[in-house]
Simulated assay, not measured.
Amino acid sequence: MGGLQGRVVLVTGAASGIGQAIALQMAGAGARVVIADVQDAQVTMNLLEAAGHEVRWVPCDVADARQVQQLVEVAMTAFGQLDVLVNNAGISGGARLLHELDEDTWDQVINVNLRGPFLCAKYALPHLMRSRGVILNIASTYGLIGAPLAPAYCASKGALVNLTRQLAVDYGPFGVRVNAICPGYVDTDMGGNRARLGPELAAAAQAKREANAALQPLGRQAHVDEIARAALFLASDASSFMTGAIVPVDGGCTSTFYHGSR
């Protein structure tokens, strides 16, 4: 696995889950890390500092252009360069049929999951072009297939998948590589949904998720570190000839029919 010594990595959505694991993995490979989240990221900050890593934490709503611009400015002021952008921040939008989905929820999902990576890339790319750096988008298997009760999420992640390819085309001549990871079932709690559901409903939702994951070829959910290791590979020189790649890390779920009940 390639190292990231001397490089600066910016990870959005780093307060918990996949984003937190990616920040820890990148720092462990030698990077200085800027973490961003609209949620409190103190736990991630503490973990990184306790391990002796150089880190900055910037509260940021990735759907807000001014906040994203300030985020990149903080990274440049703190470390003087930017080598890797990881667009991880995302929300699910809940489970709804499209005709039952309110417009505000649709807009929120698109704003965070698609406008957010657009804004982060927009303000990071001038610096990444100088460093011949990397953009890594955390998309989803839901961006590769249709999935039940997730119209906004599928639309946003599908668009992010093709934005990844498009950016690879435009910025490859500048030495910038752009790839995406599409996680499948991962044992994490996106957006803290379980806490809002209450203990009984949260336990039922988790049991259903585990049952669905059990039907996939590897028969389980991923640990966040398994996604983070793939992210480290794509951020490092070990993947130096990869750009425009859409990499499922999904236990095989997009390779087979789903045999669950309707």
Results as ranks from 00 to 15, higher is better:
90 G>M: 05
139 A>D: 03
248 P>W: 03
145 I>W: 03
72 V>P: 02
210 E>L: 10
223 H>E: 15
14 A>R: 00
135 I>Q: 00
222 A>D: 03
71 L>T: 01
230 A>V: 13
64 D>K: 11
246 I>C: 11
51 A>C: 11
198 G>N: 09
252 G>Q: 10
171 Y>S: 06
168 A>K: 15
15 A>P: 04
13 G>S: 08
62 V>P: 02
97 L>S: 07
127 H>V: 05
91 I>P: 03
210 E>P: 12
191 G>A: 12
88 N>K: 10
143 G>R: 01
157 K>H: 08
219 G>Q: 10
89 A>D: 05
114 L>H: 02
120 C>E: 03
197 L>H: 12
191 G>Y: 04
160 L>V: 04
166 Q>A: 15
120 C>W: 01
105 T>A: 13
186 V>R: 04
251 G>H: 08
142 Y>H: 10
177 R>W: 08
144 L>K: 00
1 M>E: 06
122 K>E: 09
60 C>F: 05
203 A>S: 14
259 H>P: 07
50 A>C: 07
163 L>A: 09
9 V>R: 02
180 A>Y: 02
2 G>Q: 12
144 L>E: 01
38 V>T: 07
7 R>N: 08
53 H>L: 07
83 D>H: 13
73 E>H: 06
144 L>I: 03
64 D>P: 07
102 D>P: 09
232 L>V: 07
228 A>Y: 02
158 G>C: 06
1 M>G: 14
3 G>F: 09
196 R>S: 13
145 I>N: 10
250 D>S: 13
160 L>Q: 04
153 Y>E: 00
207 A>E: 06
143 G>P: 02
138 I>P: 00
156 S>T: 03
247 V>H: 05
197 L>Q: 11
22 I>W: 01
51 A>D: 14
113 N>Y: 09
92 S>H: 13
240 S>H: 06
59 P>E: 06
99 H>D: 08
